[in-house]
């Protein structure tokens, strides 16, 4: 007898019939389990939310007064006929893969994830399962990431050179995750670090929950950047090239994203420097992550889905595409919630 699937794919989102809940739904629902706080995964207007304790503060900050129940990594909660647990996804602080077990059948929704520990968020943990629901934002063999230490050394080198030449180094990075990852890993002895308001708002939330970040100075209309020579400015991607930048005088611009692996995209972005730094898995990462789950069935949600599905089928997986409204690491159309400038 064929078993009922643990999860089904609806126009409101990924749904668990046994537990009557959704995972990262994109339309308002009664109960939503949330993998992480990015706007394409944590949306407003659900009646009840569940997330990890570390993900909850940012969600409250972004979504306002929401009813949110927290579940620490590794603890199991029974919801209806489903056993649910959260496991580190290594994407942003508090991000989780959600493991759902119904009558011995285990499915895992990975949300967004990366394999390499980044010194900021809880490192990714592989979870064994029968079916794995994965992103493939960078699911092509042209995407492979250099070790973080190497990329951070490039950023430090650029910042140091800018400081020496009297230029302000302005780096574009997403307000939740990438910005703090850079903060947590650059060499703070080079100079002061200034932050765009949208980033500093997130920093404040993360610091309040006990995440250690180096000191930063919020960019405000009243401050004079000349008081902070040799600074690194961390800005939202959409602030690059706007009048907001004028206050810094001569600048060199950088952009940190997995898309910077492609020269054409880097040139289109018109930043002086592109740093290949992503909070998503690269090609080898996504393939090894899938292998480690032991899953036979793989659902791909966002990214180069049709190409990656074909590749997985070639490798012997039962692979399917799931249409979702997740966007992954977007470049041209950034997460609007991250762009609430001061």
């Amino acid at each position: 007898m064929a078993r009922d699937p643990v999860l089904t794919f609806t126009d409101r989102g990924i749904y668990c019939p046994a537990g009557d809940f959704f995972v990262d739904p994109w339309r308002p629902v009664d109960r939503a389990l949330i993998t992480h706080g990015h706007a394409d995964h944590a949306r407003p207007d659900h009646r009840r939310y569940m997330a990890t304790p570390a993900a909850a503060p940012v969600m409250r900050f972004r979504l306002g007064d929401i009813a949110i129940d927290t579940l620490p990594y590794g603890e199991t909660r029974r919801i209806g006929g489903a056993d649910v647990s959260f496991h580190p996804a290594g994407h942003v602080p508090g991000s989780a893969q959600i493991r759902i077990e119904v009558a011995g059948e285990v499915w895992v929704v990975s949300g967004d994830y990366k394999i390499e520990p980044d010194g900021l968020c809880e490192p990714f943990e592989p979870v064994r399962c029968h079916a794995f629901i994965t992103e493939c934002t960078f699911g092509l063999p042209v995407f492979s990431w250099a070790p973080q230490a190497q990329v951070m050394a490039e950023i430090d080198g650029w910042w140091r050179a800018c400081a020496a030449e009297g230029n302000t180094a302005v780096i574009g990075a997403y307000a939740l995750g990438k910005a703090q990852r850079i903060l947590a890993n650059v060499d703070t002895s080079i100079g002061p670090i200034l932050t765009h308001g949208a980033i500093e708002n997130t920093n404040e939330v993360l610091r309040a929950q006990g995440i250690a970040l180096p000191d930063t100075i919020r960019v405000t209309p009243e401050m004079d950047p000349k008081d902070h020579p040799g600074a690194l400015v961390i800005a939202t991607p959409s602030a690059l090239g706007t009048p907001w930048m004028r206050r810094f005088g001569p600048v060199s611009t950088g952009f940190a994203s997995g898309w910077m692996r492609l020269r054409g995209v880097r040139r289109r972005r018109a930043a002086d420097r592109g740093f290949v730094l992503s909070d998503h898995v690269d090609w080898d990462g996504v393939n090894s992550a899938i292998a480690e789950t032991g899953a036979e069935r793989v659902f791909v949600t966002h990214g180069y889905t049709s190409i990656f599905r074909r590749w997985l089928e070639d490798q012997g997986y039962d692979a399917r595409i799931v249409e979702t409204e997740f966007t992954g690491e977007s470049l041209d159309d950034p997460d609007p919630q991250q762009e609430t400038a001061q």
Binding site: L262, G264, I307
Partner: peptide
């Protein structure tokens, strides 16, 4: 040399938008 099927290389090429670069990246 990259250990990938040719079709996968061909699918990657238009996304990179440059043949020399696609080869270098894979």
């Amino acid at each position: 040399r990259a250990g990938i099927p040719l079709w996968l290389f061909e699918e990657s090429y238009p996304i990179v938008g440059d043949l020399a670069e696609t080869i270098a990246l894979v």
